[in-house]
Amino acid sequence: MLNLSFETPNPGYRLLLALVLGTVLMLLDQRTEQVQVIRHSVGYLTAPVHYLAHLPGAMGSWVTGQARSRSDLFDENEQLARQLLILQQRVQRLAVLEAENTRLRELLNSSSELDTGVLAAEIIGIEPDPSRQELIINKGSHDGVYRGQAVLDASGLLGQVVDVGPFTARVLLITDASHALSVQVNRNGVRAILAGTGQLGIVRLLFVPDTADIEEGDLLVSTGLDQLFPRGYPVAEVVRIEHDRSAPFARVDARPTAHIDRASHVLLVEGPRHLGLRVGEQPDDPGPATEERR
């Protein structure tokens, strides 16, 4: 048997207290939002650590940036100028289209809109646990980030904010195995649930009947029905469909359109739920999209 020899009074009571406290914390964390206060205050301590962990990578890219040749920069500059021209031309058309869209919606008495507030952030960390797909970004509650906010990159939806610290926030990616959101096929409006698989670069449509009109190459866009993500952003592209007669549903694999493993800057946009809310107001539940799947 263990011969317990302590220098202090028996710490068994302390252990008991720690175990009870820890268990209560775990239960509260799973069931309620109250302990977010603890997370937020410890966040003051963890934020500098996250920023420091980002430092080596940031210095690396700074050095590569410094070491680039003049001609490379000229080339890139020229390319960006060309890209800008193309985008500006598109934006010109967009203004007209948007005005027309608003007019038509007014005619239809529909109040939904696409335009939302946007906040840019930089990715400063990646979740070290390989079984979870999460990112840390350099904006927190002091910048107005809130739980459930949608995160995009230049080419598609990336995920949602699940934890907010004072100066950092944690983003759950759409490829995480516990993530799901409502999408529709851009071509014909067929709706389905898009779930993560835990593997980078693969997401899967759930409960798709064998007869559903979905083809390889179809673009999946967010519907906004989950009350979390804004409507109409590209999410993924269908890459493979398998029909198995013994299975009740078809297996549809898709690839996220966002550059999940390459993005360094992201955009935070307000979802449909927040358009009517005042700044700083928080919904009490994170919504159906974060429900645990078993």
Binding site: L21, G22, T23, V24, L25, M26, L28, D29, Q30, V35, I38, R39, V42, G43, L45, T46, V49, H50, E127, P128, D129, R132, E134, V162, D163, G165, R170
Partner: peptide
């Protein structure tokens, strides 16, 4: 827990 975003108390 806060650093790695795991369940509080884990």
């Amino acid at each position: 827990d806060v650093l790695t975003g795991s369940v509080l108390g884990q």
